[in-house]
Design a protein around this nucleic acid. Structure first.
Lengths: 247, 247
DNA sequence: CGGCTGCTTGAACTTGTTCAACAGCGGTGG
DNA sequence: CCACCGCTGTTGAACAAGTTCAAGCAGCCG
């Protein structure tokens, strides 16, 4: 399989062979595995490397003292967590595997070397982190303004498009290994109401979700129901302006 | 008044004279003014410079087709918007002045020069943008998990601490020029319910809010009520490790 | 004074929560 | 092979939190 990070960044800019090689190199160092539900890192820990998701799903989350949990972001293959985390003294949130997970721990030194040697890659990584910031903002809109129905629909649209951008969809379907409890924690709904909302979405023929497979028969329709506009994902080949297929 | 950006960044690292001078320089170019409610930039516009807030309050926001509006972030003096925005083709959200506003438009070239010449400043700016990302994440927790009461309390704690970090509080009070409708749009509540929530907070003697002045008689108590933990603001002089009072 | 914007109130209503119970499934151990 | 356990998904019914609508008030500025 093609490296999902490379694939995603090429949505932004064409990368040279050397660039691609450097990225593949990132993905081959200090590779680690986790079981579903294990923490990658916990609030309060000192961050000393950047995590690059290679396969499986993970999430960022925070819990309140009384146990309420909010999932803050989903991390998919090709996602890189916070280029500069080292700068901070301690993590302000936790990260956990949702499925069995493979990821690479990229050291500070490695990141710095990459930055120096591959300006085009660096640019693309900044683009990626701006997109992540935009996603985070959209989640605020989602949680603050959308109804349960719209909110769940919106999340599904987003995840589907993000998966597609790393080549992890097949036609109108994709793997969807998230439990309803996780979805509830991501959308700020109770598990019960989330369940009923999914049923509504099914009833409206907007989604088919069975086992761990999600099918979206009519993406346009789902987007309309969610008041979803994909602009914040900045996927429209922004940086075809930088075309440099060998440096 | 001391430059708020310098003051904030010094929470992270000691800056040399030259560093400080460079930052003050940022704040003196292409200074612009807006009236309350005017947009700085609108969704869909092409971003071609970074905005540095000099005085007054602003916000980021998004609106849905049917008019629902979510305020996504508050921008206070000393706040700098998205170091790298130029990378994106178009804005995925809007920004507006809440009060009469003074801000500086910093060109791409100027930012790049700053980055090259002042690595310590660059580092501090990255710190600042990581903190902004953390704030954005915390807003998700706020919107997704906290009750109206906790949510409003939490927002007030955050704003108070952020204002304090740029020297804009006086004892237990600060200027608070935000209308209830704005607060409602930031917390995802209806204006009516926001109003009642403020009354509850007043009734519990957690805040005094009259006119445009906010007083928090017992910050600890308000934080406790909000389940507020300040760690995500990373204000605990993280970077006293870098002390270099002249380069 | 008149008109605007922002704040406040009451009452009916809706959306989403909570609690409690149960069904389905896969895995594990006896 | 069956019994049992734990996790995930599903259901009903009572309940609570927050919304909506509509009206009125207060303060401010011209």
């Amino acid at each position: 399989m093609i490296n999902p990070l490379v694939r995603k960044l090429e949505k932004f800019t064409k990368l040279s062979r050397a660039d691609q090689e450097a990225l593949r190199d990132l993905a081959s160092q200090r590779v680690r595995h986790l079981n579903a539900r294990d923490d990658l890192i916990h609030e309060g820990d000192r961050p000393d490397h950047v995590n690059l998701i290679l396969s499986g799903w993970a999430c960022r989350y925070k819990t309140l003292e009384d146990g309420r949990r909010q999932i803050i972001a989903f991390l998919l293959p090709g996602d890189l967590c916070d280029l500069n985390v080292f700068i901070l003294r301690e993590m302000d949130h936790s990260m956990a595997a949702i499925t069995p997970l493979t990821f690479a721990e990229v050291t500070r030194e490695h990141m710095e070397a990459l930055t120096l040697d591959h300006p085009r890659v660096t640019q693309a990584l900044w683009w990626d982190s701006l997109v992540n910031a935009a996603i985070q903002r959209e989640w605020s809109v989602n949680l603050g303004q959308r109804t349960a129905f719209e909110r769940v629909a919106h999340l599904l649209c987003e995840l589907f498009l993000r998966l597609r951008s790393v080549g992890m969809t097949e036609g109108t379907s994709c793997d969807f290994p998230v439990t309803q409890v996780d979805l509830a924690d991501a959308t700020g709904l109770s598990a019960v109401h989330l369940n009923r909302t999914l049923q509504e979405l099914r009833g409206a023929d907007l989604i088919v979700l069975r086992g761990k497979l999600l099918t979206i028969p009519d993406l346009e329709a789902l987007q309309a129901a969610a008041l979803f506009s994909p602009n914040y994902l900045h996927l429209n080949h922004e940086g075809q302006r930088f075309d440099a297929n060998d440096a």
